[in-house]
Design a protein around this nucleic acid. Structure first.
Length: 778
DNA sequence: TGGTGCATT
């Protein structure tokens, strides 16, 4: 157990337990506790009512009178909709069987045991889902309308059932049904579940497609895929003609890719369903109309509806146990301290049940964990034990998984998590949620000439986020959510977060759209990045400038042949440009090694502040005098040598010893394989190596990072070559304090100063060789 | 000499 590294903040907290006594029962009673106001009932009711007023409701009162809709000649559809007496029992009882026989007929490879006890249990579960009662009404509405907005609460079953209803009713004709998800785990696990419900093997009738992993075949009719995957598909099939129904799930999350998809779907529908659009051309393919279903979990359905010409909004109740919501009576200045007090209030006053605490970041999580553990030791022995678990993306998977193991007897589990637990991961057994009301958010500040930089700030969450967090307490039974902010504070929160398209670098998206012959400025988006905002916040202009610097677009903003090549790579345009440039320099092998590591989702070099000296010592082995890019290359080469001769266990041990993240190596290996395929398609020989001539590698990287460059000034700081910003080399860089004349860098991070990360030294003369620099001077 | 919420092709 570590005993040395508490921050002063933590020590103060532990030495001054002013808010909560833990030594004796007496103290418990006298302790100052956080007062709560219960508002959950009114709150929830008013929300429901406002929805009911505005939208049509899909629930148990489904209208069955129109079960013989006309206009479709499709046999399959008729057989499943019209065969039974009462629509409700008919569909649920017969359709799995009928789709089973249909499959047997089509591919002759249906699973052999459709009526086992397990299968029947699964069908019984399907029937119990809240959405099952609205099945007929739902199908009817989707049939009638080109676009349907479906507002479904958690636990309604919409994501698994709606695609099956559409398939079983024949609405999809012979096309595929796509269901898009923002996250890979969701796409794969949903497909798994639906395959079980359809009693087929995964990849057969039901499949999925995520990066590095696809299970689908010619028989696949329901395909779960990530939003990024379908945006890629758009590049090769601009009308998405393989799909007759596209369901956009979790649309309220407003990821960059979902927003681009939603805008393109509107365009596609205008072409494929010309009757609904006066601008539709006569040559459109009317035989293959597209249906769109937008699924969302929160209150901004009207915005989606408005975007799609006032599309019908349907509402499905969820199956969520009631969660009592308490707001803090006064605002809490120190949310970690308030969280600890509240946790021990729950622990001493409330019945058994695990507690989930939402915190903004790793630092708060670790500090609060130490406080809670120390404090718990002082509890009277008649109280049950406290077991803490932490959860955040940067943590080892095995550590994150500890939260899933069953809570031991006479113990209360306390899980401290970032908003990884808000959407991505569902933890069983949670009865209480403590919500600090804070999260971290990345904001991209685009400087017109300097490429832009990121900030990561702690800020207030949104209403929809607060509701999502509270909902985590009601998955298995009634629960309670303690909000460490006042009801007034909740009321002033934004309804939902700013869409990603307004917060992210647009360089990659604009390049992709150029390949589709579209300009982001002209695209009909739900939210458009501001074209005329303040000078340092022009994301479109900044992205266009970057693309021009890379040679991806010309002076007239037209896509160049090499720009088209760059777009083929699943990389940031900067790195795609470096790969394309590596062909001329003859160092593709090395550049692929580097960009695949830089494109992986987690960092390669692990920093543990408590072992800083050991980390520095281990890193010295890979350190290259030219900077961080070739340092990465050295690490990749060293790992490759180890991997060739050692077994899995010693590889892992080697990585641990050198403070290297093996997950990053493994992900980089997958990315590299993908890049090799793309290189092959455009005639880049991936085996060409620079050998000892490493200068060539830096030059290739320099082409991609030309906009991310700075020259040393007299006072020892660096000034951007493309802007006025003064940047400092990040202390974690191997070039920190080296004072080389010119640098290129991967990105800028703004904390209290602007730091360049991923830095390499490059000859000043290199820039003279760049066309973009020549043109700029002229 | 400093600090990384969550995703994705």
């Amino acid at each position: 157990m570590p005993t040395t590294t508490y921050s002063t903040k933590t020590i103060q907290k532990i030495r001054e337990p002013a808010y909560y006594g833990v030594k004796t029962e007496k103290n418990h009673k006298r302790a100052k506790s956080v007062p709560w106001v219960d508002v959950s009932d009114d709150d929830e009711k008013s929300k429901r009512n406002s929805l009911k007023r505005k939208n049509s409701i899909v629930n148990g009162n489904a209208d069955h009178s129109r079960n013989g809709q006309n206009g479709h000649k499709n046999k399959k559809r008729r057989s499943s909709i019209q065969n039974g007496d009462t629509p409700q029992s008919k569909d649920l009882a017969n359709s799995p069987g009928s789709s089973q026989s249909k499959r047997g007929h089509i591919n002759g490879s249906g699973p052999s045991t459709p009526h086992t006890a397990k299968f029947k249990a699964v069908q019984e579960q399907r029937k119990q889902l809240p959405i099952a009662k609205g099945r007929e009404a739902l199908i009817e509405e989707i049939n009638k309308n080109n676009v349907t907005i479906l507002l479904g609460e958690t636990g309604s079953g919409k994501t698994t059932q709606v695609p099956q209803y559409i398939l079983e009713s024949g609405l999809a004709r012979n096309g595929m049904i796509a269901v898009t998800q923002p996250r890979k785990v969701a796409a794969t696990s949903l497909a798994q579940r639906v395959a079980v419900e359809q009693n087929v093997s995964l990849g057969d009738l039901v499949g999925y497609a995520v990066r590095f992993d696809e299970k689908s075949s010619a028989q696949t009719r329901i395909k779960y895929l990530t939003d990024g995957m379908i945006v890629r598909e758009l590049m090769s099939d601009p009308l998405l003609s393989n799909y007759s129904v596209i369901i956009v799930d979790e649309a309220h999350e407003r990821t960059l890719r979902t927003d681009l998809l939603i805008a393109n779907l509107k365009k596609i529908q205008a072409k494929r369903n010309p009757k609904t659009d006066p601008k539709g051309k006569g040559n459109a393919d009317t035989s293959n109309p597209l249906k769109i279903v937008i699924m969302s979990a929160t209150l901004d359905a009207e915005k989606f509806s408005k975007f799609y010409h006032n599309a019908k909004i349907l509402y499905v109740k969820g199956r969520q146990h009631p969660v009592k919501i308490y707001h803090s009576a006064e605002s809490q200045l120190d949310y970690t301290d308030a969280a600890m007090r509240t946790f021990f209030q729950i622990h001493t006053d409330q019945p058994p049940g695990d507690v989930l605490i939402f915190l903004p970041g790793q630092e708060d999580i670790e500090s609060l964990q130490k406080s809670i553990e120390l404090y718990a030791k002082q509890l009277p022995s008649d109280k049950s034990e406290v077991l803490t678990c932490t959860m955040f993306a940067a943590q080892e998977h095995s550590q994150n998984n500890k939260a899933f193991s069953p809570t031991p007897p006479n113990t209360r589990k306390c899980i401290l998590a970032t908003n990884i637990a808000e959407t991505s991961i569902t933890i069983p057994g949670i009865k209480y949620v403590i919500d600090t009301g804070k999260c971290k958010e990345k904001q991209y500040l685009a400087r017109i000439s300097g490429g832009g930089f990121d900030t990561l700030l702690t800020r207030d969450i949104t209403k929809s986020s607060a509701m999502q967090r509270a909902g985590r307490a009601g998955r298995e039974g009634t629960g309670a959510c303690f909000r460490l902010y006042t009801e007034d504070a909740f009321n002033t929160m934004a309804v939902s977060g700013e869409p990603e398209i307004l917060r992210c670098s647009l360089t990659s998206s604009i390049l992709n759209l150029k390949c589709l012959g579209q300009n982001l400025e002209e695209l009909d988006l739900m939210d458009k990045p501001d074209l005329d905002s303040m000078a340092d916040l022009k994301p479109v202009a900044s992205a266009l400038k970057t693309l021009w610097l890379l040679g991806a677009i010309d002076n007239h903003q037209k896509l160049t042949p090499s720009g088209r090549q760059m777009a083929l790579f699943p990389l940031e345009p900067q790195y795609a440009c470096a790969v394309v440039a590596s062909k001329e320099y003859g160092c593709t092998s090395e550049v692929l090694d580097i960009v695949s590591v830089l494109s992986a989702s987690s960092k390669l070099f692990i920093d543990i502040s408590e072992q800083r000296d050991a980390v520095t010592e281990a890193r010295r082995k890979f350190r290259h005098p030219s900077g961080d890019h070739l340092t990465v290359l050295n690490a990749v080469k060293a790992y490759r040598d180890i991997a060739a001769s050692e077994n899995k266990h010693s590889r892992r041990e080697w990585c641990r010893k050198h403070f290297l993240n093996e997950r990053t190596f493994l992900e980089a290996r997958d990315i590299r394989e993908q890049l090799v395929v793309t290189c092959g398609r455009i005639g880049i020989d991936v085996s060409v190596s620079a050998k000892e001539n490493e200068d060539l590698v830096i030059r290739s990287m320099g082409h991609g990072l030309a906009g991310n460059s700075a020259f040393l000034q007299a006072d020892g700081t660096y000034k951007q070559t493309m802007g006025q910003t003064i940047v400092k080399v990040h202390p974690g860089s191997s070039l920190c304090d080296k004072k080389v004349p010119a640098i290129i860098y991967d990105d800028l991070m703004y904390t209290n100063q602007i730091y360049a990360r991923g830095v390499s030294s490059i000859p000043k003369s290199f820039f003279l060789s760049l066309d973009a620099f020549k043109q700029r001077k002229a």
